[in-house]
Design a protein around this nucleic acid. Structure first.
Lengths: 148, 148
DNA sequence: TACAGAATATAGTCTATGCTATATTCGTAA
DNA sequence: TTACGAATATAGCATAGACTATATTCTGTA
């Protein structure tokens, strides 16, 4: 098989693969954003505000990392913040946090219904929740309903 | 609820959360590495070698990015390469590629058995495969066996 | 109210992952 | 066998996401 033939025959596959892998890579920022937004929402519910130091503790990063990430979230219209003040979600950020939490719960309940031990289920749900299509979420909900 | 109380009461949770989120963040490099290793393995099977330009086309990145990433993989003992030559997996790299592919197949077959449409299943399998514990993989295999 | 300690900001550094532009090398067809 | 096009290398740049060290601001308490 010559190299030019290889290139030609895989051209269409490459286009498909390209889209798929690009999506995967772009998920990274989205994933991190969702983790922050959920955490900010949780802290706000629990304490009435989300302080950088609490976010840092919960996520296991330095407060500097939190500051920088929050600046990006702010730039993207997902949170509001003023110097030396707590961080709050915008409506858009709240919507994303709610969706992320819903997905998380769906995946977690599903894994438990499937018979995965609770500790593994919790960890895996965290990793998986950012990577599921609506179709798979739907299938998971249906399975959980039948096997709860 | 005072701030110091909040901090104290959430201290244990924070430790747990810290470990969980840290794992998630570190998964990224591993994820990318697995994608490259699987791709290199696929190309080697198909063409007898994996060229940077083919990897770049398949993954949808520039060949420069491939060169740099391959350098990291080489540094980590997962591939071998010489200037102007194709890239090959080391035994260690091959082992990781095989495991990744096995996990991918397990997840894909599971999603199909669950009733997820093929196109969504393929995309989601790609995203999910990097984030599952052995316990969940086991549960997936068992489900697929019963519902194939 | 003023001060000490907690929280936040800022400066500077690092690695990973991406890119474009340019130079070099390879491989093949004339 | 040479020259041209393809492949690879290299230089330089950007952004995200992490850190430490240091400076500044805030806040609760003495």
């Amino acid at each position: 098989m010559s190299k030019s033939e290889t290139k030609t025959s895989s051209a269409k596959n490459a286009v498909v693969a390209k889209a798929r892998f690009a999506r995967i890579r772009n998920d990274h920022a989205k994933e991190l954003a969702e983790d922050y937004l959920e955490m900010i929402d949780d802290l706000t519910s629990a304490n009435g505000e989300a302080r950088a130091v609490d976010i840092a503790n919960q996520l296991g990063v330095s407060h500097v990392t939190v500051t920088k990430t929050v600046a990006r979230l702010k730039r993207d219209g997902l949170v509001t913040s003023q110097p030396y003040r707590s961080i709050f979600l915008t409506p858009k950020g709240k919507r994303i946090a709610d969706n992320a939490r819903r997905r998380h719960q769906t995946v977690l309940q599903f894994l438990l219904a499937l018979g995965v031990p609770a500790d593994s289920a919790e960890i895996d749900a965290e990793g998986i929740e950012h990577h599921i299509s609506p179709a798979t979420l739907k299938a998971m909900r249906e399975f959980t309903k039948k096997n709860a």
